[in-house]
């Protein structure tokens, strides 16, 4: 089969992958609500994902706001609409660019590190060692990480959005003589709940996807160091793709709800 119909095998393995991922997600939810909860490990993971990503997210967000504003200015100035920069930038950052860019950055940082960490733990039998030590490794490693990623991502995205707007305000302040007060006044004038709430809602799903795929790939990593590399790599690739799918669904639902 495999030699004659490589396409068929690919399709089959694709569905198998989706199936196992769904089972993995189901297992997460099942174990999430059963005792014991590894609270200390959860906090440790929150710290690892949240605080340790802060600098990266901050720098990325700041440059994002800076560059985005610099690039949009000339076109808007041509129309004499440079006073629209705060509202335009803030809406696109809060609604779309902020969450997606920061989620992608986190997929790179958090997703790959989960994939590599769990992958190497699997390969070096550390996961087995946990099991033998009377600790449920799925609870200890997977549940805590997915939950931490789900809760930390929205915070990182809010933080990133905020820093991006500061970057944008800085450009406007220097190039356009717009005070920070006026800038943020216009930002909050332009922003509505339909910008902020759906974006925050979907960022939970972004975090969940990053944690889930990272853990799935790492936990099911194949033997050997190559397997660990593959786990980390495919965690990032699959997560990035999944992020866009989630984003599409989120935008679709938002349109449906707010119309």
């Amino acid at each position: 089969m495999a030699e004659n119909f490589p396409m068929a095998t690919n399709v089959k393995s694709f569905f198998t992958e989706i199936g196992s991922l769904s089972r993995f997600a189901g297992r997460f939810f099942k174990q999430l609500f059963s005792r014991p909860f590894e609270f200390r490990e959860f906090l440790r993971q929150c710290y690892q994902m949240g605080n340790k990503s802060l600098l990266l997210v901050g720098i990325t967000g700041f440059i994002l706001g800076l560059v985005f504003t610099l690039q949009s200015r000339p076109t808007l100035e041509e129309f004499g609409a440079s006073s629209w920069i705060p509202s335009m930038i803030s809406i696109s950052i809060v609604r779309e660019i902020g969450p997606v860019i920061i989620a992608l950055i986190c997929a790179g940082r958090i997703g790959s590190s989960i994939g590599a960490e769990l992958g190497s733990m699997k390969v070096t039998e550390q996961i087995d060692a946990m099991e033998v030590s009377g600790t449920n490794p799925f609870k200890f490693l997977v549940v805590t990480r997915i939950l931490a990623a789900t809760l930390m991502l929205p915070l990182l995205i809010i933080f990133g959005d905020f820093v991006a707007l500061i970057g944008s305000a800085l450009v406007e302040n220097i190039k356009g003589q717009v005070s920070f007060l006026l800038y943020f006044n216009q930002v909050f004038d332009a922003l509505g709940f339909r910008d902020l709430l759906p974006a925050t809602g979907k960022s939970f799903f972004f975090g969940f996807a990053i944690g889930l795929v990272g853990c799935f790939k790492g936990y099911n990593s194949s033997k050997g160091t190559a397997g660990v590399g593959r786990a980390a790599n495919s965690a990032v690739v699959y997560t990035s793709m999944l992020l866009f799918i989630i984003d599409f669904i989120a935008v679709f639902l938002t349109e449906l709800i707010y119309g």
Binding site: L43, C46, Y47, G50, N51, L54, P154, L155, L156, I158, F159
Partner: peptide, 10 residues
């Protein structure tokens, strides 16, 4: 630090 980060974000 985690607490500070979480509270600030919220």
């Amino acid at each position: 630090k985690l607490g500070i980060f979480v509270i600030l974000g919220i």
